Amino acid sequence: MEHIIRDFLLTSEMLSKEGLTYSYTGNMGRKRGERLFITRTGSNLLNLSKEDIISIPLKGKSILDERASSELRVYRAILNEFPYSSLLHVHAPYTLCVSFKRKEITPLDSEGKEALGSVPVLSLRSPSASEELSEALKESFKSHRIAVIRGHGVFCLENSLYRAYELVSLLENSCKILWRCEDGKG
């Protein structure tokens, strides 16, 4: 379990250093066996501690569910459906900006293109903590490991939170390049 806690804390530190999260936004979850380790509601990824990570059943209900991230239903739906162990959600600012103008994000930079290809941008009526979000991500994750919810944020499915962070970081950098090149901001 200690390596899971380290994955959360290192990922949180890197997200903070890169400005990929702010205040009390974003959340993380990782499954191990029949357990889901998830950030608790109200935790701050800028200053995450091991007390901010709770363990609940991956399936079913628990009295601790109300303490888990508001996106708990999404984490259970996705991590029960796919063989990957980790799901990361952040509100990366440039990625959010670019999401308002596109149905998919195709990086201009070679690193982003090679690692990400095209990233779908999903437009939902209920973009946060909803059944609609769970179903849209399930469909998107059949062909991609990363998706952007227009106006809400990025979800990335991987085998570690740190690897998910790396892909989200790459997407955010690609979105900075897109924003500056195509919109004349830089």
Rank of each mutant, 00 (worst) to 15 (best):
Y84K: 12
L15T: 03
S140F: 00
M1G: 11
L45N: 06
Y94K: 04
E13P: 07
G26M: 04
I149M: 03
I54R: 04
H144D: 10
N173D: 15
F37E: 04
G29T: 12
A68F: 04
E131C: 09
K103M: 11
I177A: 07
E166C: 13
G186L: 11
L45K: 05
L64P: 05
L137I: 00
E135N: 10
K59T: 14
L122R: 06
Y165A: 06
S126G: 05
V121F: 14
C175W: 09
R73S: 15
V98D: 09
E34M: 12
V119F: 14
A92P: 01
E166H: 08
F100M: 10
G26P: 10
C156V: 13
H152T: 00
M28T: 11
N173S: 15
E51L: 11
N27D: 11
T106M: 07
Y162M: 07
I63W: 04
R35Q: 13
R76F: 05
I105R: 06
V148W: 12
I177G: 12
E71W: 01
S55E: 15
I146E: 06
Y24N: 12
W179T: 11
S169K: 15
L108D: 11
R73E: 15
L72R: 06
C156I: 09
T25A: 10
L46Q: 14
L87I: 12
G184N: 02
I146P: 03
V119D: 08
V98F: 15
Y22K: 12
S140L: 01
G112R: 00
L170R: 13
E158Q: 10
I149V: 09
F155P: 03
S143C: 11
S110R: 10
S169W: 10
S128I: 13
G29M: 10
